[in-house]
Design a protein around this nucleic acid. Structure first.
Length: 792
RNA sequence: GCCGGGGUGGCGGAACUGGUCAGACGCGCCCGACUUAAAAUCGGGUGCCUUCGGGCAUGCGGGUUCGAGUCCCGCCCCCGGCACCA
């Protein structure tokens, strides 16, 4: 047989698949529901570099194996691909390289698409979408308007994260340790008028996972999201400022310590300061409020100033001095706290610093003291009874507070979807009418970031007539965060050419939720949370019939280089091209999955790829031999059982365990067994099975060998099924232990009774030597496995 | 501090619900065959120690069990999330 030449066979089969439209999956006829379907999705790439890296190769190959597996198990499988084309990564790449972001992005898309096709991934290219195309962002804008109508997208002035390097606001979710997640610059706090999505309206729903049957999310991801949302149960309590005749609400998780409050603190940004505080306090607040939370937290000594007023504790009428201090944060709770230095570390530090009084109200046994009628109650009980008392007095109520903040999504950058809003002097904030969508992203002379939206400098585009009154008006010049695009791209795939709506409900409800999503865990508090928010909101709008976008979620581990994740900014990218040239796509695909468990980080090294290449060459040679010499038919032989066992193992690993490296081992073992005798009566069956099972990993060689074995179109052959009856053995190796130590092993028939097995075990000479003369205390039998004789 | 994940040969890793002297499969290394030679290929060996009887080994120390990498308790270390969030 000729030599294995991947460079010959791979392009050939890629053409065959394309011509046969092998992986294009039309939507079902209306009304189809009971058909088996599978929506396989991996996070779409940013086309910001001109090449994929091995991390992508890993991720998409895993998705490819799952795709083939479900296709061949009879499911209608949707497996799309697209481009997260808008946004900072692409725009920054364009700035670096010079040129228009659109040109740079589209060049990258062409190159990456070619790489994907060279790797032979089973993608339905008819469904390709790119977030920078007007046909896509028209609907991003349309969806924004639906959120806007419901108050789920709104505009307000707020302190936001400003990246001085990227010259734009970025979301809380992408500030890491006070630095920009993209470029690493130190984030500044700026007070700006920005657009927000009201993610907090779904805080509770986002903490719960309304997954369909069979759905499953990793525990660690749920934990990350729950930590991020940060729900605290407590109470809101009103403190009266008698001399001003106003109420100041506080949020506390410890209403049981209400009698221990000895002072009161408001955040520097609190309205109370500006309205009523002393000049000294105002001066303090001006400086303190301008500082970032991280800097405030880093302060070792607490600072603050007395405002000159007092608040009355509703439970005992005590007058507490109101201070302003920067350890209280405006954007959590109510921006004001009751300070209980005896039972709160921070309040205690403050009390020590300013010599304020401390009163213990919970004793060592966890019971209330110094708390009037509540004395003696356990703290947990007292929480409820004090809140009940307050509620009765009209001075408090149970309350819940979240750490989650609304998602700030307006960006002062060029390369994004324009926000379809018009500002009119008379009518105010006016949404662009649906029929005027899309608001096209115009060309501008200078799209470099300058701290204000580049679109604002395009006067011709900026000035429009108000859609309401026809008077002079201006467009919103900020663009949308790229994460808005990725919050719904996976829905567009199911209906990518719809020009009446972003998607049709029936077809969305057929395909979705996504059966299996694969992507990085770094998106846990960003993209994955935003997407869930979108789907829940769209469900409430009646646009789709489910409440979670992704039924099953899997996080692949990183492919690292020098210990860090491969990424463009770190400059440690290894692409697939050289490896594909040298070893072929099949070897690259199989190797990257064989490297180890899918969810673990792996340091990149091509040192082991030779092992896979040897395996594929051996496969080529041995299957070739079988095709020439092995008898036709399916007569049973020594290989039959091993072959069926391998089918069961591989299917279980891929289908149930989602484990992709062990099937390769199993197939290597079966190949070794087959190589023993390529003219055995069941050699042909074993060879066909190996080829069939390796197809998701190495589809090109599999297709070629399948043809040489006299068959056609392996990609649409049913996945092999293990014959249970052939898996059963008539004999097995009985392990005999004495006191837990293996003393003998020999072959016996299956199905013997426990007593018979014990008799056989005792009959063994080697066992005899260990039990002779001793008292048998107990025998343990694991049917068809082992006998343990306990002597003593 | 709170929450989650993890720790097995020189390396990647296997052992799925406690059950075949733990270490499959691959890499690397060693030996051999073929070759003038090399590559490729094929075959064999490869946890540690050993007085060659055996002993010790799945981060450490206990425990449960006839039997523990797997279960329980207590530590240690690594990775990730949250943290002046009242």
């Amino acid at each position: 047989m000729d030599k294995y030449e991947p460079t010959q066979i791979e392009p050939k089969w890629q053409r065959v698949w394309a011509d046969a439209r092998a992986f294009n999956v039309p939507n079902p006829e209306p009304g189809a529901v009971d058909e088996k379907r599978w929506y396989q999705l991996e996070m779409l790439p940013y086309p910001s570099a001109k090449s994929l890296h091995m991390g992508h190769v890993f991720n998409y190959t895993m998705g490819d194996v799952v795709t083939h597996y479900h296709r061949r198990n009879g499911a209608r499988v949707l497996r799309p691909m697209g481009w997260d084309a808008f946004g900072l990564p692409a725009e920054n790449a364009a700035i670096r390289e010079g040129g228009h972001p659109r040109d740079i992005t589209e060049e990258s898309i062409v190159l990456i698409r070619e790489q994907m096709q060279r790797l032979g991934w089973a993608i339905d290219w008819d469904r390709e979408v790119s977030s920078h195309e007007p046909t896509f962002y028209k609907w991003t804008q349309w969806l924004f308007l639906r959120f806007f109508e419901r108050g789920l997208a709104y505009r307000r002035a707020a302190p936001v994260n400003w990246c001085p390097n990227d010259q734009t606001v970025i979301a809380n979710e992408y500030v890491v340790d006070g630095h920009c997640e993209r470029c690493g610059a130190l984030i500044e706090l700026r007070n700006m008028t920005q657009w927000f999505f009201k993610t907090t309206a779904y805080a509770d729903e986002l903490r719960e996972y309304e997954l369909p049957p069979g759905g499953e999310w990793p525990e660690r991801t749920k934990t990350i999201q729950r930590n991020w949302i940060g729900r605290s149960e407590g109470a809101e309590i009103l403190f009266r400022v008698e001399e001003l005749d106003i109420d100041l609400p506080v949020f506390t998780t410890r209403p049981d310590t209400l009698f221990g409050a000895t002072f009161f603190v408001v955040a520097p940004e609190h309205d109370f300061v500006e309205a009523y505080a002393s000049e000294e306090a105002k001066e303090y607040a001006k400086h303190a409020g301008a500082r970032r939370a991280e800097d405030r937290a880093a302060e070792t000594v607490k600072t603050g100033v007395f405002t000159g007023h007092h608040a009355t504790n509703p439970v005992n009428g005590e007058r507490l001095p109101i201070w302003v201090a920067d350890y209280v944060l405006m954007d959590y709770g109510t921006g004001a706290i009751m300070a209980v230095p005896a039972h709160d570390e921070r309040d205690n530090e403050f009390a020590q610093t300013f010599d304020l009084s401390v009163r213990t109200v919970i004793d060592d046994d966890g019971r209330l003291v110094n708390s009037a009628q509540f004395d003696g109650e356990e703290a947990e009980v007292a929480k409820a009874s004090i809140v009940a008392w307050l509620r009765n007095e009209g001075r408090g109520a149970p309350a819940i507070s979240y750490r989650l903040r609304d998602w700030s999504f307006s960006r002062q950058r060029y390369w994004g979807a324009p926000i379809p809003i018009i500002y009119c002097d008379d009518c105010g904030v006016v949404p662009v009418p649906d029929e005027d969508l899309p608001v096209l992203l115009p060309d501008v002379d200078d799209y470099l970031p300058k701290g204000k939206a580049p679109l604002a400098s395009n006067e011709e585009w900026l000035h429009v007539d108000c859609p309401k009154c026809g008077g002079p008006a201006t467009r919103e010049a900020d663009t949308m965060d790229t994460f808005v695009d990725s919050s719904w791209y996976f829905i567009r795939y199911v209906d990518p050419t719809n020009d009446e709506a972003p998607f049709g409900r029936e077809v969305v409800d057929y395909w979705m939720p996504v059966s299996q999503y694969i992507g990085g865990i770094d998106h846990s508090t960003g993209h994955l949370l935003y997407s869930r928010f979108f789907v829940k909101a769209l469900n409430d709008m009646g646009m789709l019939g489910f409440r979670e976008p992704f039924a099953r979620l899997y996080h692949q581990g990183w492919i690292t280089m020098g210990g860090t994740k491969m990424s463009k900014t770190r400059g440690n990218l290894v692409g697939p091209d050289d490896l594909v040239d040298e070893y072929g796509a099949d070897a690259v695909r199989t190797y990257i999955l064989f490297m180890g468990p899918g969810d673990k980080d792996k340091e990149w090294s091509d040192a082991g790829i030779e092992g896979i290449v040897r395996f594929l060459r051996r496969l080529w040679r041995i299957v070739g031999e079988v095709a020439e010499r092995a008898p036709e038919g399916r007569a049973a032989g020594p290989l039959t059982r091993t072959t069926h066992a391998t089918i069961a193992r591989v299917s279980d690993d891929i289908g149930r365990r989602f484990q992709f490296h062990t099937p390769v081992s199993a197939l290597m073992e079966l190949l070794h067994a087959l190589a023993e005798d390529t003219s055995a009566p069941d050699a042909r069956f074993a060879a066909e099975t190996i080829v069939s099972l390796i197809q998701p990993y190495a589809p090109h060689i599999a297709e070629e060998l399948w043809q040489r074995l006299g068959h056609e179109r392996l990609w649409e052959q049913p996945w092999p099924v293990a014959d249970e009856s052939l898996l059963e053995r008539s004999t097995f190796e009985l392990v005999v232990q004495v006191n837990g130590k293996v003393r003998d092993r020999f072959i016996v028939e299956t199905g013997l009774s426990d007593d018979e097995l014990v008799e056989r075990a005792k009959a063994s000479e080697r066992v005899q030597a260990h039990i002779d003369g001793a008292q048998i205390r107990k025998t343990v039998v694991v049917p068809d496995k082992l006998v343990n004789i306990v002597v003593g």
